[in-house]
């Protein structure tokens, strides 16, 4: 960027100056995002569902896509009913709450000082497993 404008002196050893070099990159990203946003708004208008009726339960009640994995996890927990009548609901909610708790505490549980992905295979494997589980539950929730 800076070479194009012939401003090599502007370039410090630490990196590119925030303004205008980095700001231009960021502005371009914002415009790409804006283009995606406006395209979605134009071609897929916000849905207009029928008004709420507390006396008529729809056949398939599903949450928004970002809650589908949590919803499906609660349904999967129903398979643990052999442990007792209490098990499905309590396990379903506590496992998810525990997962969130672990996520908050991640930097304090992962004591490995290495940052490169190749030098911390365990955490990277855990992360990829979590992503696969999240994606699988979401797709399963969507299809079921």
């Amino acid at each position: 960027m800076s070479e194009v404008l012939g401003e090599k002196a502007n370039k410090t050893e630490e990196g590119e100056p925030f303004f205008p070099n980095h700001m231009l990159d960021q502005t371009m990203m914002v415009f790409v995002m804006l283009a995606i946003l406006v395209t979605l708004v134009m071609f897929f208008p916000a849905p207009m569902e029928p008004p709420a009726d507390p006396f008529v339960t729809p056949e398939h009640i599903k949450p928004e896509w970002y809650f589908l994995s949590a919803y499906q996890a609660l349904k999967v927990a129903e398979h643990f009913s052999f442990l007792g009548a209490w098990a499905p609901k309590v396990l379903g909610i506590l496992v998810q709450a525990g997962g969130l708790f672990l996520l908050v505490l991640l930097p304090f549980l992962d004591k490995n000082p290495e940052r490169h992905p190749r030098k911390r295979p365990f955490m990277i494997a855990m992360g990829i497993l979590a992503l696969i589980a999240l994606a699988a539950l979401t797709i399963w929730g969507k299809l079921s």
């Binding site: 569902e49 008004p51 709420a52 339960t57 729809p58 009640i61 949450p63 949590a70 909610i93």
Partner: peptide
């Protein structure tokens, strides 16, 4: 609307 009312009913049960 219908979907928001019932999704919230189910969601707040969790």
């Amino acid at each position: 609307n219908q979907i928001s009312y019932w999704a919230t009913t189910v969601g707040t049960e969790a």
